[in-house]
Each structure stands twice: as structure tokens, then as C-alpha cells.
Design a protein around this nucleic acid. Sequence first.
DNA 1: TACATCTTGGAGTGTCCGCTCCATTTCTGC
DNA 2: GCAGAAATGGAGCGGACACTCCAAGATGTA
Lengths: 191, 191
Amino acid sequence: MARYRVGLETRERILSATRRLLAEVGIEGVTLKAITAQARVGAGSFYNLFASKDDAVFEVIREAIEAVDPDPAGAGTDTLDDLVDAFVAFMTGSSPIARIYLQLAGRGLTDAAIAARVLRSHRRRVERFADAWQREEPGLTEAEAVARAEVMLGALTGLGMTALIDPGFDMRGHARQLLPSHRAVGSPPMG
Amino acid sequence: MARYRVGLETRERILSATRRLLAEVGIEGVTLKAITAQARVGAGSFYNLFASKDDAVFEVIREAIEAVDPDPAGAGTDTLDDLVDAFVAFMTGSSPIARIYLQLAGRGLTDAAIAARVLRSHRRRVERFADAWQREEPGLTEAEAVARAEVMLGALTGLGMTALIDPGFDMRGHARQLLPSHRAVGSPPMG
DNA sequence: TACATCTTGGAGTGTCCGCTCCATTTCTGC
DNA sequence: GCAGAAATGGAGCGGACACTCCAAGATGTA
């Protein structure tokens, strides 16, 4: 395992290559050959630093799942606007991680281990959104707030998917419709 | 290609096995060996009926993409309630096709050919939902109706994904919040 | 500088994949 | 019932995959 400076640098280069490849060709498309070529290392160097290909892939996946959660500093105080903005920024930003996260969600449909991880992070997010809903509309019961959070997150996920498949899609404009200020019937939703 | 009765039956058995496997183990998990074992045929029989493994897989995929569209008979007359109900039924029904469809959406993030197909079917559905919105609320401009349809479909897709990952999730209850009758602030969304 | 330890590339290994090939059996129209 | 076409199973092929092994070189410590 990495102990010298060069080893640690190589490790980072490998993770970075893995991250890029995961976003571009998908979990199943990532091969050891592609990783080592992209990172410009031999297979021996790779296995000097990682126990297996999946070891590197899962490290990036863990990072992707964590990254969906907006800035933890805001927890307990952020508004719905903040949360929606953060989610939209995450999805439409240039980082490959959002793309990896959405692939993972799809993959959770057939892989129980991934499903459990995705679900856990989803529930944490629902809680955070529900809290914000109650702060915004104090009359809501907790169940109502959770239900609204669930729908809001579902919509954000779905819109995010469309945005990543269709580059011309205006996710931010569409996401605004989800905010309470748009609940009044007839307010213009911005194409 | 199949000309005799037994050949056509074998063909159906293979497609059925492929469908089941796609839902259970995912697109990348489907192997020829698994298909032929599940369908109880030899590799030679398979290739007597299909040009390649992907030939069978794509046939099932095409079917999955088509199936997301609700009953074509209703086009031009169905209400938002109808459309949401049909989508929820599709997602929560016992057919493996919904599971395949959502995997495909995720796969569209890295596969341009699949992305194009998914996007095309998505746009068709948006149009249909937008029409229903305008019928429900005649005051809406077309752009507004399309924007609402986009958000509604995004939410349905996101909720569907949660429902398929978390068997206890009440998709129908949550989906009701998306209907115009729930737009009045404070109406109970049903946990 | 001297030396132990870590790092490196890449040839080589076993496994699994999609697919071919073909001798044998089954089917169907006449 | 016969002939020609279709259907069948499975051994085997070439290639891609993750991973091993190791001789040679780079690095850090005292």
C-alpha cells in the first residue's frame, strides 16, 4: 500500500481516471486496461495500490453517493430554495459525479448492495428536505412534509436524468415549479 | 429464421427468459449461457433464431420502451388522472418491464443510442401529458403545459425508481400530490 | 553513501464471454 | 411415408477480462 509520495500520487491519478471513466462509459464499461491506460500506469502498479478493480470503483462510488448531499454545514437551517439550488447545481455542474450517481440509482434496481446504499442516502436527503418544508410551512404535519419531500426529490431526480441525457434541457427553470411559491395555479413555470 | 411451429415457440421462450433476466440481473448481467439455460435451449438453437445476443436483448428493450406509453387508444382524450394512474400501474405492476425501462434510462447516460431512444419516447410522453394539462386547465399556454408535463413526468420517474428499490413505498399515494387538485396549499398528501 | 522498502511495467495465467460449426433429430407439405 | 428444410445441443474457438508475478528501478532513512 502507498507509503511514499509517488505512490500516493499514483493512487490519486488512478482514482481520477476511474472517476472520469465511470461517468463516460458507465460502471460496466470500465475495464482495468482503460483505467491503467488513462492513468498511465502498469497493471502491477495498480495492484500495488488497490486490492481489486472493484476496490477503486467502489471508492469512487462511495464518493458519488456522499456528494448528492448538499453542504452539510447548512443542515437544519437551509431553505427549500437552497436545497433545490444545490441539487440543480450538482446535477448540471461539470463534475462527472452526478452522472455516476444516477447510473448507480439505475443499478440499484438489480444490485441489492447498491440499492441499500442508495436508499440510505435517499432517506437522509428526504429528512433534510422535509425539515426545510416544515420550516417553510409550519402548519405541515411531519407526514405531510415527508410526503412533499419525497415528491420533490423524485422530481429533482427525474429532471436531473432528463437534463443529463438532453443537454439542452433547462433543469433550473423546471425545478423552480417545485417550490411552494409556484403552487398558486397559473404562475408561469418558465420553459 | 423460425418457420415451423416449434421454432416460433422456442423464440418466445427465449424472449421470455431474456425479459426475466434483464429485470433480475440487468442488461450487463445477462449472458448467453443464462438465457439459454433459462430457456432450456442450446446455443445453436439460439443462433438459429437470433442474429446475436443483442438482437434478443434489443427486442425486449424496444418492448420496454414502448410499454411506458399508456394505452394509445386514450390519446387525445385521457385526463391527467388517467395518465398518472397508468404510469403508477405500469411501475408498480408485476411486470419486469418497468424495471428494465428504468435501467435503460440510467444506461442512457453513457450509451448514445439508448439515450436517443429513451429521449424520443420521453418527448412523446411529455406531449401527451401536456395535452392533458391543457384540457384540464384551458388557461395554460402550450409552454406552461409542457413545463408542467415535464415536471410531472420527472416526478413520476423519480418516484417509480424509489418504488422499485423500496418495496414498501406507496407510489400511488405520493403521485396523487402531482395532480392539480392537490395544488391548493395545505391539502393532505397522504403518507 | 548504503540499504531496506516501496514502486513500476508488462508478459503471462486462468476464466468467462459471445459465437460458430455440424452431425443428428424433428417437422411439415405433398 | 418420403424428401427437403428447419431445429437442436454442445464441443470448441478466438478474444477480452481481471489478476499474478517478478526483475529492475526509484525513494526515503540514517
